[in-house]
Amino acid sequence: MTAPTSPSDAAGPGPADSVRPIIATSLAVTDRVRLRQRVDKSLAWFLADRRAWMAEVDSALAPVADAIEGFVLRGGKRLRPAFGYWGFRGAGGHDSDQLVTALSALELVQASALIHDDLIDRSDTRRGEPAVHRRFAGRHRAHGWAGDADGFGDSAAVLLGDLCLVWSDELLHAGGLDPAALSRARPVFDEMRTEVTIGQYLDVLTQATGDTSVERAGKVARLKSAKYTVERPLLLGAALAAAPAGVTDAYSGFGLPLGEAFQLRDDMLGVFGDPAQTGKPAGDDLREGKRTFLVAATFEAADEPGRRDLERLLGSPDLDAEGIGHLREIIVGCGAAERTERRIGALLDAALSHIETAPIEDEARAALIDLAHAATTRTD
């Protein structure tokens, strides 16, 4: 694509009282440099440019632009660009709009992963709106088109998710960063996208084989979510700043346990979260049959009747509120929820022990510590 003008130049119920409560910490309080607004501006600029390009190709692509803009620009915590930004700053890099634009590419990787994840899990909603495959199936029905509406929606979601992944590559290079810096960052960016893809496959495989081990759940969590949420963005920022090995080692020591803690919090919210805050139906992870650490811990600790009920109800598309409530009782009663909360705390402590002694700039250290607490105590 022809590089456009830079954006800088253009206008539920809780699990149990015994489980450590989720502190309502907003990620907004960690935004020391208005990063979220700047990322939003970069994304809006880039997507407007892509919309204009598609309009020249065919007017029928307007709904594609609408769907991706709505998905990317509506909500989102911008957590991955934040870790990338402070990873860069911690290694001595200086703030710039070019940096923020490049790191905004992480949000398109995230969009791709979520669009595909919703399709794989047959989720109806995302952030309180119809999932992309549901949105395009509804469009098919509304227009009375030929063929299967759900099949059309599924195909559209695959292609829109792929398009976001392609565009993440374009946006990484569109902001105007030094080519030498981008060359250093490229292997990190590529490996991150590979990890999240194979992690998604292992997640699908785990559900198909019925593997309920804590070990497999942990590996899936690390590859599918943990590494690309924290560690890889940090290392991407470090690569852009040409950070020395001591910094990158500290970032991995911080990022891996923190990313896993983030995912475990996500798992807890998928079972116990408030739909008004999560944007997804209550207990959706149970209905989708996700083999998370929380579920694996429940299989380990539940009594025989509890395991039988878990096997019978987990992954049932007809799972109702009563069934969800029963599974919650099993999860809490056997101690799996409390075990998950303890693991979140232990992982957070491990992460903080690395960043507190890391050879990085003090402002970045403080920002990363704030982000760590916010990422593990969030309610959405």
Rank of each mutant, 00 (worst) to 15 (best):
F262C: 00
R222W: 06
A375Q: 12
A241F: 10
A67F: 12
V214A: 03
D58Y: 12
A113D: 02
G218Q: 09
A55M: 15
S104E: 10
T298W: 00
R291N: 05
P275L: 01
V214H: 04
G325P: 08
A137S: 05
A221L: 09
K227G: 01
A102Y: 12
G323P: 06
D17P: 12
D274I: 00
F254I: 01
D380W: 11
Q200S: 14
A60M: 11
R291F: 06
G176S: 07
S155T: 14
V109T: 09
S123L: 09
R216C: 03
P281K: 02
E363D: 15
A302C: 02
P275C: 01
T25D: 14
Y228N: 02
R139V: 11
R139L: 13
E300Q: 11
L205Y: 10
G333K: 06
S168A: 13
A24R: 06
L371T: 06
A67Q: 01
V39E: 01
L99V: 11
S316K: 14
R308C: 10
D40I: 04
R135W: 10
R32I: 03
G283E: 07
I324R: 08
W86F: 13
A180G: 13
H133F: 04
F136R: 04
E170M: 02
S59W: 08
T2P: 13
A336H: 06
E341G: 13
I120P: 02
G12H: 07
A364P: 03
D380R: 11
R36T: 13
R287W: 10
A226M: 04
A142F: 00
D249G: 05
V247P: 02
W45D: 15
S316N: 15
S252Q: 03
A180M: 05
T101V: 14
T357Y: 02
E329P: 09
T357V: 12
L103Q: 05
T206K: 11
R193L: 14
A111V: 07
G144R: 03
R307A: 09
G90M: 06
A137K: 04
E356M: 05
A296H: 02
H173N: 09
T5I: 07
E231R: 12
F152Q: 00
A239V: 01
P317D: 04
A374D: 14
T340P: 13
A146Y: 05
S18I: 02
G161E: 03
G151Y: 14
D274H: 01
P305T: 12
P130T: 02
L160S: 02
V109L: 04
D58N: 06
A174W: 04
T206P: 01
W145S: 07
F299P: 02
A296V: 05
G76E: 10
L310S: 06
R51G: 06
R34Y: 11
S168M: 02
T101C: 15
A374I: 14
G255Y: 03
G218A: 07
R342C: 08
